[in-house]
């Protein structure tokens, strides 16, 4: 009789333990998920090398690549506002703000890409 009772006690204690462990697990999952989400920023690459990075939440105008292109950040969006390339394709591309979006200036081998916490999309067409 006594054996059965202690078995039941053990079972209750185990259930409490299981719940506690499950809770810790959930917390870990949650915080791990949070940890890998930095704010959005724009990364500037010239000839394949990353040369600069700017947070999207700070407005400003930045001279890139020794003056070939000018980057403007405003209201969480970025654009190339001026460039010395002949066709100005990069200026015409307008504003970008979503993770994975990019502006390309082929003559200057310059790419501005938005990197964001939104890792759910690999490519944008």
């Amino acid at each position: 009789m006594k054996g059965v009772k202690s078995d039941r006690n053990t079972a209750i204690r185990d259930i409490v333990l299981i719940l506690a462990i499950a809770l810790v697990g959930l917390c870990l999952l949650f915080f791990n998920g949070r940890k890998t989400t930095p704010g959005s920023s724009v990364v500037v690459e010239v000839d394949g090398k990353t040369v600069a990075s700017y947070p999207l939440d700070t407005d400003g105008v930045f001279v890139l690549n020794g003056g070939t292109n000018t980057l403007e950040i405003k209201d969480g969006k970025a654009r190339i506002s001026d460039a010395d390339c002949p066709n100005m394709q990069c200026v015409r591309q307008g504003w970008i703000s979503r993770g994975g979006q990019s502006i390309v200036c082929l003559p200057n081998k310059l790419i501005v890409t938005v990197t964001s916490s939104d890792r759910s999309v690999d490519y944008i067409l």
Partner: peptide, 13 residues
Amino acid sequence: VTGIRKPQDPDNL
């Protein structure tokens, strides 16, 4: 996962 833009609003998918 490939996002296709909104043609009228290419900032969004």
